[in-house]
Design a protein around this nucleic acid. Structure first.
Lengths: 189, 189
DNA sequence: GGCATTTGCCTAAAAGTCTTAGGCATGCGC
DNA sequence: GCGCATGCCTAAGACTTTTAGGCAAATGCC
C-alpha cells in the first residue's frame, strides 16, 4: 500500500486551499481526509484534533498575510504606505476569503503572542509614524484603522455592499483618503 | 404526557439566549432540544432544519437591534445621533454577543430584503442627513460607518484590544469624535 | 359531553463528523 | 538484510442532523 505522504504542513496548506474553496467554517478533518484520499483517522497522527487544524491554518494565513503587507509597505511612507497597507489587506481577503477568515480565528493568548499577529500590530504602528501621533492617540488610531479595514473587508465579503450600484473600489479609495486626512488633522505635535 | 409547548417563536428566543451563552456557532438543534428537555426530532415540527433555526435567530436579532438603534436615535441629530447610533450598536454587541453574531449571519437575498436589515440601512442614512453629503459620498460614508462600527465591535469581541492597557471606551469616543469631524469636513454643499 | 381530526412529541434509524485504541506493513537507519 | 519507528488502517463509541412513521393529547364540531 503506497503511503500518502501526509504531514502537518501539507495538511495545513491543503486546509487553507479548502478554506478558500468552501469557507473556513466548512474545513473539517473529514473533508481534508477525502481530499488526500485517506481515512479520517490517519490525520490524527499529524494533527491533535480539529481545533489544532484550524489553529494551524490560522497561523499560516497570518504569516502569509503579514508577508504580503510587509512587501507592500517596503519603501513607502505616509499616505502611500497607508494605501498600500489597506490594499494589501483587501486584496488578500478577496483572493483568499477562507484564509482571511482563518486569520481572524481566535487563538489562545500564548499562541497569539508567538504568531505573526505581532508583526501585524507592528506594521500598523509603523504606518502611523508618518502622522506624528502621541499616545494614547496612536493606540486609538491603530484600533480605528484595524476596525475600518477589517470591517470593510468583512462586510464586502458577506455581500453587504451589493445592494447599491456604487463601485466598492471607489468607496475604498474614498475611505482611505478620508482616513489619511483625518490622521493628518489629528496630529499631536 | 405533558406537552412542552414548543413553537418557532419560543425556539427562536431560546436559541438567541443560547447563542449569547455559548456562541452563535454552537447553537445546535440538539442543544436546543436539551434545553427544552424534549427529543431532538420534536423540533423538526417547528423548524425546517438547522439553517432555518439560525436564520430565525438572525432575523430576531436584526429586529431587536434595529429597535434599539431606533429608540436611541429618536430626537437626536448630528454628532449626538452619530454617537447614540454607535453606542447602541456596541452596547448590543457587548450585552448580546451571540445575537450580534447572529445578526451578521448571511441571509439569502429575498429574506434579507424583507428583514430589519433595511431599517438598519435607512437609519444609517438618516444619521448622515446631519452632514450634508451628496451622492456618491453618502454611500461611501454609509459604508465607512458600517465598517468602523462593525469592525470595532467584532475586534473588541474577539479580544483584539486586550493587549494594550488603553481603555476601549476611550478609543471608541476618540473614533466617534474623529468620524464626526471627518464627515463635517467632507460636506459637499 | 362525546367524537373526529389535527397537532405535538415520541421512537427508530440512517448518514455524517470527531476522536481514541490498537494493528499491520512500509521504509528508514544501521 | 534486519529491526524498529512511523504511517496509515480497521474498529468502535459518542454526538449531530434529518426523515419516517406512530401514539396520545388538544382542538373543534355537533
Amino acid at each position: 500500500m503506497v503511503r500518502a505522504g501526509l504531514s502537518a504542513e501539507r495538511l495545513t496548506r491543503a486546509g487553507a486551499e479548502l478554506a478558500d474553496e468552501v469557507g473556513f467554517d466548512q474545513v473539517t478533518v473529514s473533508a481534508l481526509a477525502r481530499r488526500f484520499d485517506v481515512k479520517v483517522a490517519s490525520l490524527y497522527s499529524h494533527l491533535k484534533n480539529s481545533h489544532d487544524l484550524k489553529t494551524r491554518i490560522a497561523l499560516f494565513a497570518l504569516e502569509e498575510l503579514a508577508d504580503r503587507v510587509s512587501a507592500a509597505l517596503a519603501g513607502r511612507a505616509g499616505k502611500d504606505a497607508l494605501a498600500a497597507f489597506a490594499d494589501a489587506y483587501r486584496d488578500y481577503a478577496r483572493e483568499h476569503p477562507g484564509r482571511y477568515t482563518a486569520a481572524r480565528f481566535r487563538l489562545d493568548p500564548e499562541t497569539a503572542a508567538s504568531s505573526a499577529g505581532v508583526r501585524h500590530a507592528q506594521m500598523t504602528r509603523a504606518i502611523l509614524r508618518g502622522y506624528d501621533l502621541g499616545e494614547p492617540d496612536q493606540t486609538h488610531a491603530v484600533r480605528m484603522l484595524g476596525s475600518v479595514f477589517h470591517g470593510y473587508v468583512s462586510l464586502e465579503a458577506s455581500g453587504g455592499f451589493s445592494h447599491t450600484a456604487v463601485d466598492p473600489q471607489e468607496s475604498w479609495s474614498w475611505i482611505v483618503d478620508s482616513l489619511d486626512a483625518l490622521l493628518r488633522n489629528r496630529t499631536t505635535p
